[in-house]
Write a protein that binds this DNA or RNA. Structure first.
Lengths: 336, 336
DNA sequence: GCGTGACGTCGAAGCGCTTCGACGGGGGAA
DNA sequence: TTCCCCCGTCGAAGCGCTTCGACGTCACGC
């Protein structure tokens, strides 16, 4: 293994000079720097990560905690993770992958052993047990999602409330009067995942504001569930003409079900989803949707974190404004 | 930060004794060990990862390189990753996440900086450019998938050839004479991904052996693609009664398409998939399938790696035997 | 009774890097 | 011309841990 003293000797300088040339923390003359750089290249020098971490108390590694539970859409998590890794690399950091399963102990472990400099935590619940822990750690963190009391922590997420509202506003402007929200599986609400409830709030508030008749239905991801929800919806709300879907897994089967029940999309029924753009675009009927910007969230989370690592102050809460894209699943309400 | 000297002082021993108590590399008396352990608990001591890595030249971190490209099924990757993390934790290792995008340079970086002790590489191509690099690194690696020349490297994968054969054998035993394979998108074959070709080989060989008429069709993941493939298949092979699907993305739409074309599954057409069990089970018609055991692959990969890290020899190639589960999509050929 | 291990523990020497204080030399200000 | 300061570099002191050799003690065999 070639080490910094080898480079120093080869370049005819002291090890500290090599270190400063590498880190830029002190001025080094053009000439010396170039000599060092070519020595590095020639010898194939790579600083030892452990030694660096020990001496500088920076590992240049971020922890990413991914959820595993039912009701989360896997591609969203994956896209988020990839975006985190890519962005982190752009800031000269690597990413350590942790599963939710490891729990608080896992967070504490990687933080306390100084394995990582900072943490990104996904799938935050309203009253997440990890909150006090994150506050007590001596390293910064960013949470994806908003707990009830984010005091002192940094959070970022899509503004789900606004997303719910935006969907309804669009339906309202198209003349729809009777709308429904098909949401996540019941367990997601039970465990108090903030984003699901926020969509409901936005949806309901906006429907009320617009004088629309509205209802909310959770929906399982199981095979027949979409069909059953569609049937119940139609029997209970025969005048239904607008549906907001916030559940990736059932989006396609739900459209299928409505069509089999004799409704044409968007002729008889307009549908707006809250989901990743790729999903909305990939369906047979491209669906008007509010994007779930997982890649952007990942990138922004890393940027917040690196700022905090640099000692900068960042705002506690970042809400990404929803962005709606019109596609083929929405139309003005039938004049009939 | 509490360090090993603090623990040593608190327990009334020397730092090296604490270290040995922790690692078990030298015998420590019951009494001393207990005193040390309670000191550790009391002080909340956590060994510094960087210091440990520097002194022991082991980081206890594995690198996992995940693919991002088109045509790979995201949930499979995710499940694999989770399984790798879980198993690695069981062996006292953490997992660093790398994307394919980082390429060979990324592998070299994490290996040469001693950030990781070993590497797991997914989505290996027949003539993968990373092969020579992996051979030259001074740390062990395991590849998921088989390149053309695995000499000197350790590989593991499902036995896709046997999987292709197994599907055909089952169809043959059910009396089917005319079968087709619907495979991955063309680009997967173009870039010479081993597993896709192996399925084709197994499928074709077994069909020939059984005197069956067979054909192979790649299939895009795009919305209408499944329908088009189904139509062409039926017009070119009117006697078709058995289909093997090796393409997660189109499995459901393909069944849909066949049914819309007037074929009943499994009454008129038997379908066998090569896909994760969860997918096969979640469809409206639960599909007979050969499992894609991503979790098992992940676990086995980690175990191979930790064995290699312990200096044990492991076999170069591990092929997991295919496992077929009968579900509702297969039936004996119509007597008609 | 003495040599011989094995056991249990200690001290010290690194592991490879960063960083702090120091220092020589050259340029600008007075 | 002198003084001062800043630029560029060096040397040394760690960072917190592991590991190697050494050493005292005890039990055992002869």
């Amino acid at each position: 293994m070639v080490k910094i003293t080898d480079v120093a000797r080869h370049a005819g300088v002291s090890p500290s000079t090599v270190s400063y040339a590498l880190s830029g923390k002190r001025p080094i003359s053009q000439m010396t720097r170039q000599r060092i750089e070519s020595s590095i290249r020639e010898l194939g020098y790579r600083p030892h990560a452990g030694a660096r971490a020990l001496a500088s108390s920076r590992s240049n590694v971020l922890a990413l905690v991914v959820p595993l539970r039912a009701g989360i859409h896997v591609p969203v998590v994956m896209q988020f993770a990839v975006s985190v890794v890519t962005t982190a690399r752009g800031h000269d950091h690597d990413v350590l992958l942790l599963t939710q399963e490891e729990g608080e102990e896992g967070l504490r472990r990687v933080a306390d052993t100084a394995l990582v400099d900072a943490l990104i935590v996904m799938d935050v619940q309203l009253r997440d047990p990890r909150l006090p822990l994150l506050r007590s750690l001596d390293r910064p963190s960013v949470m994806i999602g908003f707990p009830q009391e984010p005091d002192g922590l940094t959070c970022i997420d899509l503004d789900f409330r606004a997303a719910g509202e935006l969907c309804v506003e669009r339906l309202a402007r198209l003349g729809h009067q009777v709308v429904a929200l098909v949401g996540s599986p019941p367990e997601v609400y039970v465990r108090e995942t903030a984003f699901a409830q926020r969509v409901v709030q936005g949806f309901t508030a906006s429907a009320d504001r617009n004088g629309m008749s509205s209802c909310v239905r959770p929906c399982e991801a199981a095979p027949g569930a979409a069909r059953r929800v569609a049937e119940r919806l139609l029997s209970e709300q025969p005048a239904l003409t607008g549906v907001v879907v916030h559940n990736e897994a059932v989006l396609e089967p739900l459209i299928e079900a409505f069509e089999q029940l004799g409704l044409r999309v968007p002729g008889d029924l307009s549908i707006i989803a809250i989901c990743p753009d790729e999903l909305a675009e990939s369906l047979r009927v491209p669906v008007t949707s509010v994007a779930l910007p997982s890649a952007e969230l990942g990138a922004r989370a890393v940027e917040l974190l690196t700022k905090k690592l640099d000692g900068a102050a960042v705002s506690e809460a970042t809400l990404l404004p929803p962005r709606l894209t019109d596609r083929a699943s929405t139309a003005p309400r039938n004049a009939s």
